[in-house]
């Protein structure tokens, strides 16, 4: 369904990453694996994901497959490490106008439970859940090798959540690396191979998910 990825197998390495509200954190995620970030609201999960995507001033080294973040122009970096924020942003009237890197086919839309004419919809009439799924699809069209997902199923019902998890499973099988924040213990158990907990801006070393 999605074209083969250029950087299909991506190892994400983070060392001494820090920013206001976040103590230095180091970890690595293997290609084809998902790391879950858990912790209470306001602990710094979103701050960490934003820092990896270089959306706020931060310090530290991040690399994907040995490619250093500082050696890549920021817009290109954000295409390699695609961030799906908890709140998706929209800047045009119709859904389709937001797919700047190509339009998804009907099968891709269908996999997330969206009809084929979803691209013609008015953004103003989207539900929160539709926004979240279309935001994910829009980000995947850029073909990032690392996916940074901030509570990707927070506003979805059970069926849609399962569809999103299925899609993410496909991406892992294709060699993508995923870092996702979640409040859902069962989702963490289903998707992640390791889990890192954050509290008051301090991250514990990742632990393997049994």
């Amino acid at each position: 369904m999605f074209r083969p990825f250029l950087l299909a197998c991506a190892m994400l390495t983070v060392s001494n990453l820090t920013r206001p509200g976040l103590q230095p954190v180091s970890f690595a995620v293997e290609a084809g694996k998902a790391l879950a970030i858990v912790g209470p609201s306001g602990a710094g999960k979103s701050l960490l994901l934003r820092a990896i995507a270089d959306l706020d001033p931060n310090d530290g080294d991040v690399s994907i497959d040995g490619i250093e973040r500082r050696s890549v122009p920021a817009p290109r970096w954000r295409q390699m490490a695609g961030l799906l924020p908890a709140e998706t942003g929209w800047w045009a009237d119709t859904v389709g106008a937001h797919f700047t890197s190509g339009k998804p086919d009907e099968a891709s839309l269908g996999q997330l439970g969206l009809p084929g004419d979803a691209l013609d919809w008015q953004v103003a009439r989207l539900s929160t859940g539709e926004r979240q799924r279309l935001g994910l699809l829009r980000m995947l069209m850029v073909q990032p090798s690392v996916l940074l997902l901030d509570e990707p199923t927070a506003s979805l019902d059970e069926q849609s959540s399962a569809q999103v998890e299925q899609l993410l499973g496909d991406r892992l099988a294709a060699g993508n690396t995923i870092v996702f924040a979640s409040h859902d213990e069962r989702q963490v158990a289903r998707l992640a191979y390791a889990v890192m907990s954050i509290r008051d801006g301090v991250a514990e070393p990742p632990e393997a998910v049994p």
């Binding site: 817009p75 954000r78 295409q79 799906l84 942003g89 800047w91 937001h98 700047t100 850029v142």
Partner: peptide, 9 residues
């Protein structure tokens, strides 16, 4: 909306 575009490159 601005950051959504930045996130897409």
């Amino acid at each position: 909306a601005i950051e959504a575009q930045l996130c897409l490159g």
